[in-house]
């Protein structure tokens, strides 16, 4: 009988070290690209040497990063089956975080799309959606819990085939000193939900393969991203696809940008964000 061990010579420390070092040249379908300029799938129009974050997040996986004000963050759904659950925090004061209620109430619009701000509960824009080729997103259903994942798939074990979104957010948050107290409702991209006249929530799913969403960070952000099936995904199988993440430097929304005065509400959100950033010396 052969085993993986037969492919490795690890009977001494030096041999084990050589064996471990020899593995680094390998690649995987799901991995971070370091430096980011080595990404195999640089977004069109982006200078690969400007990239500060490039990664393919595994199905059921998660990623997290602190990014500077002005950073452009692009999420790609190459297979049409990713579902990017996102929570944003002001990286300087994580008490300030995504507030989904304000994010839909203040723009008077429940469906996310280009120009939609992602607002904190402190009256500031954390980010703005600057591009969207999917149009299928959700601000109502949040992410899955161990309770709902177990009901749907039979298990939510973190090491298993059907981890919950909340358990992934907990791991990502913990790596920044945050806990379950710090997980507000999330938004999700690439799998849509429509609200019917009676309030019924209808899962509309994906817009197909090859769509992307791009955000700009209006403040320094802690970004948590979890890639798990949408809670209303009707499949009893766990068939989420990989998610690609790229980021590169840019400018926040500033006076003179058409977006800066797109609506009176978003204009005051940008004024509040700029007011905060200037006082912090950002």
């Amino acid at each position: 009988m052969t085993s993986i061990a037969d492919d490795h010579q690890t009977d001494s420390v030096l041999a084990a070290r050589a064996d471990a070092r020899a593995q680094a040249v390998r690649t995987a379908d799901y991995m971070p690209y370091r430096p980011a300029s080595t990404s195999p799938v640089v977004p069109d129009g982006v200078d690969r040497n400007s990239l500060v974050w490039a990664e393919t997040v595994a199905p059921g996986g998660y990623t997290h990063r602190v990014i500077a004000r002005g950073t452009r963050l692009r999420l790609d759904d190459p297979t049409g089956s990713a579902c990017a659950h996102v929570i944003l925090y002001n990286a300087l004061e994580t008490n300030e975080r995504l507030n989904v209620a304000d994010t839909i109430k203040i723009p008077w619009q429940a469906y996310l799309g280009t120009g939609h701000p992602l607002l904190s509960g402190d009256g500031r824009a954390l980010a703005t959606i600057t591009a969207d080729t999917s149009g299928r997103h959700d601000t109502f259903c949040g992410t899955s819990t161990d309770e709902s994942a177990t009901a749907r798939y039979g298990s939510a074990a973190p090491e298993g085939p059907s981890p919950s979104g909340r358990s992934r957010f907990l791991l990502a948050a913990a790596k920044h000193g945050l806990s379950g107290r710090d997980l507000p409702p999330s938004v999700s991209f690439f799998q849509g939900v429509h609200v019917e006249a009676d309030g019924g929530l209808t899962f509309t799913g994906s817009a197909g393969e090859g769509t992307h969403v791009e955000l700009v960070a209006e403040l320094p952000l802690l970004v948590l991203i979890v890639n798990v099936p949408h809670p209303l995904d009707p499949s009893n199988d766990y068939l989420v696809g990989p998610l690609r993440v790229h980021a590169w430097p840019g400018a926040p929304t500033l006076p003179g940008d058409p977006q800066f005065t797109a609506t009176p509400e978003v204009n005051r959100a940008y004024l509040n964000s700029i007011d905060y950033a200037e006082a912090r010396g950002l």
């Binding site: 989904v100 109502f140 819990t145 929530l201 809670p231």
Partner: peptide, 11 residues
């Protein structure tokens, strides 16, 4: 809110 809405599939 999201867990409440997702379980009952109504807003």
């Amino acid at each position: 809110t999201p867990d409440t809405l997702a379980w009952q599939q109504n807003a």
